[in-house]
Amino acid sequence: MKRNRTALAVVRKTGRGVLVMLLVTLAIVVLMASAPGSVAEVILGQNATKANVAALNKELGVDKPVFEQYTQWLSHALRGDLGTSPLTHQSVTTAIAERLPVTLELTVLAVLMALVLAVVFAVACASWPGSPLDRALTAVSSVFLSVPAFIAGPVLIYFLSVRLGWFPVMGWTPIGAGFGENLRAAIMPSLSIALVEIAAFHRLLRTDLIGTLGEDFIGAARARGMSRAYVMFRHAFRPSSLSLVTMVGLSIGRLVGATAVAETLFSLPGLGQLLITSIGSRDVVMVQGMVAFTGIVCVAVNTLADIGYGVVDPRVRRVAAA
């Protein structure tokens, strides 16, 4: 009975994820088709004749109706073949596999930094709400919230690389070439995209913590003589982190866009950079494959966040399965 309901919930969530994937990939085909220019023009260059362009378009199959292009792509994609770029002649899956480690590391590092800093900030603020410390930290996070990565990046480069020389100005060192060096290359780009997330997580958790600390069960735990730190971390933290779990799930989607900015800014060989160059050269195959891939990641992460709900709050376990 209980198992049936859980299974049903999993099926329903998976179904929803598949639907999202179909819509996203379809939307990309339509958008790319309606954008001016084509990959044939990019390949053949400025001096190509119209006839040449049309011939190449026919060869690449981009002259067919949009829907036919899409079903064709889909039937290949379902078999794990995301196609080959007509421009670079590289298989899309290979290109993704090559660049994924960079983007993955940036994203994971950004989420980790954002979580650690936000938790420290939020706990400090919620412990003394309305205090000068609370107001100062909230002001700092307001600044973070309003500084986009393309401004935070150059500022960080100026101070931490140019003036202090702690980190390289740009470029990437793979993990294989030494963990320390790799981390040095990754920290600044991650931090520049993490700032907004720090602020968002901090504000959310601070408000939820203050709300929770006013609950009767916190008073009851204090009345049992439990220490401040124990009450904060063993009683208040978990019930306060529900919305944070959702927020982290959503932020991973946002970070995919943000990594594109950071990778361009710091010249890192990641997915975001490839995506931007591919869009510029109207490389539909490459764009399509990458969108499909990041879509799967986003859907998976948000499903994980849903499951995380149940781990954090036992009351959700039933509801989620219902």
Binding site: G219, A223, M226
Partner: peptide
């Protein structure tokens, strides 16, 4: 906090809210 518990303790009004739900 050394007194709360072994010296003085308290039972609250609404048991549904004075136990931590998680």
């Amino acid at each position: 906090s050394e007194i709360w518990g072994p010296q003085i303790s308290m039972v609250f009004q609404d048991p549904g809210r004075s136990l931590n739900p998680v």
